[in-house]
């Protein structure tokens, strides 16, 4: 077993600062609409390295590799599916160069973009193999842990966790995206996520992307309530919500807003705190300040867990038929 640098650093530093957005930074540097960000790891390594460096300079403890769309299923859309190892290796190796010995490299793994059986065509085995292939490249490039992020389906997470463990011996971290009434698009609640993932032996669990810091706070509060002992929480919120103004899209979470979010995450016991879409090194610098500064003196979240919808004639009727079916099946 490789030494677990993630947990060494968690133990020694207590809190770790993640980093921020990659895609929008690449676009500012000239990545055109629809181009594969992962290809830039080999065609424009200086640009990718420069973005990593900017986050390192802002105070990030973790540099996340530019490999979010690095499974063969995503790369196929750019006819790059035969370059999975090369592009993931390069993503992690560039991050390793910048991170050195003091910072950590997270090997980013995003969804395949396909639906798994029975909803879609992808089998568990196919998905697992694709994630394993990606993890091999990330580990070879020098990642300290695998970061499975922006997930909505537990089936796909399971394939990714197993694939990452097949392809590497790195610790696996999972963050899901709760952007639909405080659940994932596929209906997974924060409590269900943290309990299921802990059951699979994942030790760092959380939320990323989503609908801005306010919703992320509620999601992490729910996760903190349900957290099994020993689980470390992680949050990487978008920098607010997207707004369209005078022909440009911008996110409304300013650096001070993200600093406030960092403090509230700390108060909730979240130990790994970073940002996602719309964030810049400037945001991360503000978050660094909030992480190193004094803790919130009085933080008393009073979220009310929504009451389940009351039963109606229709729900009772359907429930009765389900029970009858279950009985008939026995």
């Amino acid at each position: 077993m490789k030494s677990n640098r993630l947990f060494e650093q968690l133990e020694s530093k207590g809190l770790l600062l993640g980093d921020g957005a990659m895609g929008t930074m690449l676009q500012q540097a000239g990545l055109t609409d629809g181009g594969a960000p992962e290809l830039w790891n080999v065609t424009h390594p200086d640009v990718v390295r420069g973005i990593y460096q900017a986050y390192a300079d802002a105070g990030s403890d973790i540099i996340t590799s530019n490999s979010f769309g690095g499974t063969s299923y995503r790369l196929k859309l750019h006819q790059l599916q035969h370059r999975v190892f090369e592009l993931n290796y390069a993503a992690a190796a560039l991050a390793r160069e910048v991170a050195g010995d003091t910072r950590l490299v997270a090997g980013s793994i995003g969804p395949t973009g396909e639906l798994l059986e029975p909803l879609g065509p992808l089998t568990q085995a196919e998905a697992r193999a694709a994630f394993a292939e990606q993890a091999v490249g990330l580990a070879a490039g020098g990642a300290d842990f695998v970061l499975i992020e922006t997930m909505s389906s537990l089936d796909e997470v399971q394939a990714a966790v197993e694939g990452a463990r097949e392809g590497s011996d790195l610790p696996v971290v999972v963050t899901m995206t709760f952007d639909t009434n405080f659940r994932t698009m596929m209906g997974v609640s924060p409590a269900q996520a943290v309990q299921t993932l802990a059951g699979w032996g994942v030790q760092v669990i959380g939320a990323n992307c989503g609908n801005g810091p306010a919703e992320t706070e509620r999601v992490m509060w729910e996760m903190a309530q349900a957290r099994p002992a020993g689980v470390v929480l992680m949050a990487q919120s978008n920098a607010g919500l997207p707004h369209w103004h005078e022909g440009e899209i911008s996110y409304d979470g300013t650096p001070p807003v993200m600093a406030g979010y960092t403090q509230r995450m700390r108060a909730l016991g979240v130990q790994v705190i970073g940002a996602c879409c719309g964030s810049t090194p400037e945001h991360l610098a503000a978050m660094r300040g909030a992480m190193d500064g004094p803790a919130l003196a009085d933080y008393a979240p009073d979220f009310v867990t929504a009451a389940p919808k009351p039963a109606t004639a229709a729900t009772d009727r359907r429930e009765a038929r389900r029970a009858a079916r279950a009985q008939a099946a026995d």
């Binding site: 639906l115 909803l119 909505s152 009434n181 994932t184 698009m185 596929m186 209906g187 919808k309």
Partner: peptide, 12 residues
């Protein structure tokens, strides 16, 4: 729309 069903149920 009301957050009672999610994507998997709707797809099925």
């Amino acid at each position: 729309r009301d957050g009672i069903l999610f994507v998997p149920e709707v797809l099925l």
